[in-house]
């Protein structure tokens, strides 16, 4: 299920996803609007896409593997061009995505959307603190439970916010 940072269910945004093996590339005229791309597709056509993003014809959502920690610096200069970054967590125990989120927000001043994919509801409060603003959960949960999880997280001590 897809939710925003306050736990509210998000409507289907009508974004299109480019399949990994798609023959067509998002640099042709057929590509308009919001596209979710794997990193490889961006790398293959970055120059064309940059121009089309800057011309307002295309919006790109880059899908990253939360274990691939080097990508943040690779895309540093392109970050303002992305509508959203979707970080796919390799598993609940893999915490690299938390540091990625903090680095994106505080080190690279990334202001676009940041979505955690494949995350557990109980981890939402910490993910939110690390800069994530929407989530795709594997499980379907009652909205009341998600609200309770977010409320029960309380206000962390100011010192634990010392990320910079």
């Amino acid at each position: 299920m897809l939710i925003d940072q306050y736990g509210a269910r998000l409507p289907d945004p009508g974004e299109q996803r480019l399949a990994e093996d798609a023959e067509s590339r998002p640099d042709g005229d057929a590509f308009e609007g919001d596209w979710i791309l794997p990193v490889a597709a961006w790398r293959a056509n970055a120059d064309t896409m940059r121009a089309r993003i800057d011309a307002g014809q295309l919006r790109i959502i880059l899908e990253l593997d939360g274990a691939d920690t080097a990508v943040v610096s690779e895309f540093a200069t392109d970050l303002p061009r992305f509508k959203r970054l979707d970080i796919r967590f390799p598993g609940f125990a893999d915490g690299r995505g938390y540091s990625l989120g903090v680095l994106l927000r505080t080190r690279h001043h990334y202001r676009g959307g940041l979505r955690g994919i494949g995350v557990e509801a109980d981890n939402l409060p910490a993910l939110r603190q690390c800069g994530y603003d929407s989530f795709e959960l594997d499980a379907e949960l009652e909205p009341a439970l998600i609200r309770e999880i977010l409320n029960n997280a309380g206000t962390p001590h100011a010192l634990s916010l010392g990320t910079g």
Partner: peptide, 17 residues
Amino acid sequence: ELLRQWSTLHPEFNWLP
């Protein structure tokens, strides 16, 4: 105590290797 407050429920470091 400073370290305790900083490290307790630290959002970035709850799922270390």
